[in-house]
């Protein structure tokens, strides 16, 4: 099995007081990590390799720092790393990133491409399905179960409300992985240090046969115009009234928020 896994390095904003600067947020103070979904994707790749043998390429589009998440993937069990970087990539939307990834992956004789179902920062959930279309292979995203057998992938997709869609497709294919599909192993600092010996190839977009105008804002069909902070309400809003009043206010809110 020749497996490619796409990984993205994302900032953890869970506790951050987000500061908007122009079309992005200030990131100097933030801790970065591998996109949570991608961590599951790498684990899935490693488990498949452990079962069927093969080779795993860990690939990321991003700057020098992206090496960190590639190396982590290599420490988990990946074999080769690829990092794609070019100044023209700035302002790329998900489609442009998918285009870039597709250009790199098409030259690999892959059986399976794994990505996260979405990235925790921008959360478009576009790359896996777009990538498959660009590569001309079948896809399934939100996979919570994956079995590879006889050149086919049997996938369980998570639907809303605890239901799963079971499907089968021919390989090669792209699968977008949902969290919970497996239990990602711990990646030790020692393991990462050892993995630094594995090669991480650096590719430029010209190596992929792309022009600067194919990516970045010019090569994207969507553009971020403006960011704003949605009105925040922390410290719980207290629902006043006697038990019946308070309870009915609460029930209304639950309905309004779509949790009923």
């Amino acid at each position: 099995m020749e497996i490619v896994v796409c990984v993205k390095r994302v900032p953890d904003t869970s506790e951050a007081d987000v500061v908007i600067t122009g079309k992005d947020i200030k990131k100097d103070d933030l801790a970065f990590e591998i996109n949570e979904w991608d961590n599951y994707a790498v684990e899935e790749a490693v488990q498949i390799k452990e079962k069927l043998g093969g080779n795993i390429t860990v690939i990321s589009v991003g700057d020098e720092e992206a090496k960190e998440v590639i190396r982590r993937g290599l420490a988990m069990g990946g074999d080769t790393g690829i990092r794609i970087d070019h100044p023209a990539l700035a302002g790329s939307d998900s489609m442009a990133i998918a285009k870039t990834l597709a250009a790199a992956i098409k030259d690999i004789d892959y059986d399976l491409v794994l990505t996260g179902a979405q990235a925790g920062d921008l959360g478009a959930g576009i790359v896996p399905v777009a990538l498959a279309e660009m590569l001309g292979v079948p896809h399934a995203t939100l996979a919570v179960g994956l079995d590879i057998e006889d050149g086919k992938a049997k996938v369980k997709r998570e639907l809303e409300g605890g239901l799963m869609e079971v499907l089968e497709m021919d390989l090669p294919a792209v699968v977008g992985v949902q969290t919970g599909i497996n239990e990602p192993r711990y990646v030790s600092i020692m393991g990462i240090r050892k993995a630094s010996k594995k090669e991480i190839k650096l590719l430029d977009i010209s190596d992929l046969g792309l022009l600067p105008k194919d990516v970045g804002e010019e090569g994207s069909l969507t553009v971020i115009e403006e960011l704003s902070v949605p009105p925040v309400t922390k410290v719980a809003e207290i629902l006043e009234g006697d038990p019946a009043e308070a309870a009915s206010k609460l029930a209304e809110i639950m309905k309004e928020k779509g949790v009923l």
Binding site: E183, V187, S188, G191
Partner: peptide, 22 residues
């Protein structure tokens, strides 16, 4: 076990990952 990432209790993993990150 930590180095190999095997058999590490989940809550311990999270504490370690948090320490690496935060």
């Amino acid at each position: 076990l930590i180095e190999e990432g095997r058999g590490v209790p989940k809550t311990i993993m999270e504490a370690l990952e948090s320490t690496v990150k935060n």
